[in-house]
Design a protein around this nucleic acid. Sequence first.
DNA 1: TTGCGCCACTGCAAATTTACAGTGATGCAA
DNA 2: TTGCATCACTGTAAATTTGCAGTGGCGCAA
Lengths: 214, 214
Amino acid sequence: MITEPNLGLRDRKRLETRLRLEDAAVTLVLRDGLEHTTVDVISELADVSPRTFFNYFESKDAAILGLRQVEIAESELAEHCDRVAENGLLDTVIHLLLTVIGPPSTRPTMREDRLEILRRHPQLLTTQLAQFTQLTTEVASAVTALVARDARFAGDSPAEQAASADLVLSLCGGAVRVAVKEWAEMNPTDAEGAAEQLESRAISLAREVSVKLS
Amino acid sequence: MITEPNLGLRDRKRLETRLRLEDAAVTLVLRDGLEHTTVDVISELADVSPRTFFNYFESKDAAILGLRQVEIAESELAEHCDRVAENGLLDTVIHLLLTVIGPPSTRPTMREDRLEILRRHPQLLTTQLAQFTQLTTEVASAVTALVARDARFAGDSPAEQAASADLVLSLCGGAVRVAVKEWAEMNPTDAEGAAEQLESRAISLAREVSVKLS
DNA sequence: TTGCGCCACTGCAAATTTACAGTGATGCAA
DNA sequence: TTGCATCACTGTAAATTTGCAGTGGCGCAA
């Protein structure tokens, strides 16, 4: 059991429960197939009640695919706003994206297992796509809020701010995507603690490009 | 991990938490001594917050000695009352006593460990004694309620009922004590599932005597 | 003696989990 | 076609856990 530092007891247990549910879902689907894996047995294997399952995931598919519920609370946004002053907009948006995507699972083979599941049950791709769409929308509005609070865009019109937010999101999204791809291509044994490096790698990618373009 | 049957998810987890706390307390006291074992480290080893510790035990000593908080809820009493109709008063009181004492821990060496702790830290005997006193008092009032609901004592005065309750409690307490002593003297390897036999042994002891005296 | 820190323990509000009783969709057997 | 069972999912109240800010005792150093 990898102990997550910087996390209080409550948050650590929440994370562990989420991972137990994802592990149980993936394991059971691989063993018994999608239709024979009910929410009840997933919850039983994860040692929580079925109702708790739906406190963590919007649907059975979401647990199988590891899709997190996307909703940026006002308080959370405030934290990110504080980051803007210290670290700049790019860093903040990248941090926000990684927060939304969530920490990669502890199980090393999780990625391969999920790809195998998608291969066997292509209907899950629908859920996958829908989630990506919603995720982009949600994050976009948050980024808009962040841009509106940034001094450099303070005088712009709302329309201009929205456009800037879209561009910032594109840039940061691309940086995260590249960083994740690099991470995904790493030798699994090297993946130790790469989660933290993911953020700094994405940030330096984004900064590089933005400096070159400025 | 021994799975307890007949128990819902909520009750099973509550039992596991209690046992984790008792295990942690005994382990740490044996390793580090009584004064170096704080509630904080016990809770940390049991993976709950220190506040939760005090939801389960009235004091640090209670956890070390495995003394359960004694309080017989109205609903619990109602269940026991149902047993009176089916099984008779003696069976019911004995069942109540064993419920209050609580199921023996899963760890086989727990008894020896606690005796060793009492040897090293005799001041814990004070807590032990105090608890026994309170336990007797609490159970006594419950037994009084049970007697009051028993058809054979229905016509008696409250004073007579109270006296009968005391005698019934003495008899059943003695039976349980003898049964526990027999159990404690068993070869530890034979102690498998003896918890259930404990009750039937105590019941037959009490019945034997009451038949002989009637 | 005084202050300071550690520790046992408590009160309380907020977060989390559970039990339970639903609803609606879907498949399957009579 | 008509139940009937199963399953995904939801609303809600109650149980449980946690964080936090205490209180009070006690030892120990200045």
